[in-house]
Design a protein around this nucleic acid. Structure first.
Lengths: 363, 363
DNA sequence: TCAAAAAAAGAGAGCGCTCTCATTGACAAT
DNA sequence: ATTGTCAATGAGAGCGCTCTCTTTTTTTGA
């Protein structure tokens, strides 16, 4: 099955003599190298190299000559050789636990596009479960990325230490690290959550509740805190906290099931994520025939694309993704140029609530 | 909140004198190299290198010695140096136009995880729009990936040529390339679509229609063909083809709007994707008060997670993602080992239809 | 007119790894 | 004692690039 492939080796025969297009390179990557160009133009390798670099001393004439010839020969720089020599990789490592989640995939899409615009490359690592996670980081670290973007809370202390030791900056997206050296881009979850409390109270709700992701994700905690604080500040009893087991749709489903008895006691629910809200709403409607927003107002958080669908029509607190990505990129490019970045943690202000059909106006 | 962690930095003090842990390396990546280990153990670099390779002649004793010391020193192989020397990268390039789409992000999640399991790395390239696309491929090609997975139909002829010339195999996922040398993993769309026709006809529908993505995506064409053929075979008039402008939710929305007059003439609609189906259904319900499935049965395609939500409850033709990913990985690992892979195009059989609430049984 | 400065080009040493080839013993075969 | 074999190790040449240091060429100023 594997020892008959005649056609290919034939062109080895025609290779001997006058084939200018295929320059030297005996058993290279099969690609044209700087050396090939140098040989071809009969100038030194160093000069050829200079033609491709900025801020270097070379006559414009020679540069153009080299560039033109390189183009003709189809030269492509070998990033491995370059990285080996420069110790800069222009690689951004991305550790993402749930690519398969609307909000993450949205961010990833934007991010990957922007990263390529600044001529860097994105290496994606699944941060699925803790045990594999450290191994994943090892793999990533082997590439000495210029920076690592962390979208997963599961980073172990050891892993953090390791990255730090190797001098790879960690940028936390939408989460806060205990690590004081880490960089981070987040948003003002507390202020946003306070807005939600205001909206609910202003529109006549009196018995607020918060659907918590139930884990110690900083986003969850901040949203809860902001929501509870503001409610208290407005003179209402503290919101009831309904626990879930994560941020997903299924978690919302299960939370609704478990929260049946508590439903009559509340008139509005702020959820730690849109999916959670959607899952809760779907299940409450299906199982208990709950009418939303008449019996319960629901507010999500993130404003994923789904939330705007007429089948969901979810009122939600927007996550300022656009600006967060902007800030992340700014950090990334500064960092990759070796510049000092201050402050290390940026908080983008909340962009407010998009009111849709899951919240009632009772007055 | 963040500037009190005394314990860790202390060991910096003990660093001055007899710390064999920090070997040579003057201005390297900041990492331990094979040479450092060699110097430390006073053996040759070559032997140290051998300890890390398989199928190499070295005494077990020495190997263990090296591995232990390497572990202690925190050695991590430098993939750039290795790739430069071996011309193998263990990098898989992924060209994906819409990461931000349920089906793609689902595949990406599975794929990234599996790729890391076989100790390869995933480099993600957004394939958004044609003009940027070739530049993106350039970036990718600079890394000489062991293979490139293509999830986007937008590959230009020039790009294909380039990859071929550089000897990088292209694997098309869920699409067929005109390129005879390309690898591919797909599924039996025609057979699947035929199943849908059967289901609809068997349950009493008589005026079928197909919501086409409207572009020349091979998946769309195959689904349409299979659906039309089978309908004809069953003796019914050819399905009406309703055009959309892509595979997205918004495309479905717009299609519904435009198709209003045609609605009375059909009793069932097979859509080229789930999102298309969802968008069509949402808009038809909202704008025309269309009752699904009473007035119109709708069948999607792919079975994305959303389809199972009670708010959508979409009957759909499943895309056998799991097996497709399996096959892709099999190819990938064979290819990365330089093995010959035959056949080049694998078609996974369809896994059938999941019947839910958007299809009526009329008899 | 000629030295000094500036511009341009060349030489060559790495970067950290792999891989071929050469060298060294140990031990069995002659 | 001599040769051959084989396991184990060492030496060293790349891989394709960058970057420092020289050397060569051109420009400039008194």
């Amino acid at each position: 099955m594997s020892n008959d492939r005649p056609a290919i080796s034939e062109d080895a025969l025609t290779d001997g003599t006058a084939v200018p297009t295929r320059a030297a390179g005996k058993r290279s990557y099969g690609r044209v190298t700087l050396k090939d160009i140098a040989l071809d133009l009969d100038i030194s390798l160093a000069t050829v190299a200079r033609a491709f670099q900025k801020d270097t001393i070379i006559s414009e004439e020679t540069r153009q000559l080299v560039l033109r010839r390189a183009e003709q020969l189809g030269y492509r720089a070998n990033v491995f050789a370059r990285s080996l020599a420069t110790r800069k990789t222009r690689i951004v490592g991305v550790i993402m636990s749930s690519v398969n989640s609307p909000i993450y995939s949205e961010v990833l899409a934007k991010l990957s596009e922007r990263i390529h615009r600044i001529d860097m490359s994105l290496m994606l690592i699944p941060g699925s479960y803790a045990q594999d996670f450290d191994a994943s980081l090892q793999t990533l670290m082997a590439y000495s990325p210029d920076a690592i973007l962390v979208f997963s809370g599961l980073l172990s202390e050891a892993a953090i230490e390791q990255a730090k030791h190797a001098g790879v900056p960690l940028i936390y997206f939408n989460r806060v690290s205990r690590d004081p050296d880490a960089y981070g881009v987040g948003c003002d979850n507390e202020a946003g959550a306070a807005l939600v409390a205001d909206l609910l109270i202003d529109s006549g709700h009196e018995r607020l509740a918060f659907l918590s992701s139930g884990n110690d994700a900083t986003t969850n905690i901040e949203r809860m805190t902001g929501f509870v604080e503001r409610t208290r500040m407005r003179g209402l009893p503290a919101p009831k906290i309904i626990p879930a087991t994560g941020f997903s749709y299924e978690d919302g489903l299960n939370a609704a099931l478990a929260a049946r008895e508590q439903l009559p006691a509340i008139d509005s629910l702020f959820c730690a994520s849109d999916l959670l809200a959607l899952g809760f709403a779907d299940e409450a409607r299906r199982r208990f025939g709950l009418r939303i927003p008449e019996e319960l107002s629901i507010v999500g958080c993130q404003n994923i694309a789904l939330a705007s669908w007429s089948s969901h029509d979810l009122t939600t607190l927007c996550l300022p993704i656009e600006r967060m990505v902007d800030e992340t990129l700014a950090m990334l490019s500064s960092l990759s140029q070796g510049q000092i970045v201050e402050p290390r943690v940026v908080r983008v202000p909340s962009t407010g609530i998009t009111e849709r059909g899951t919240t009632a106006r009772k007055k």
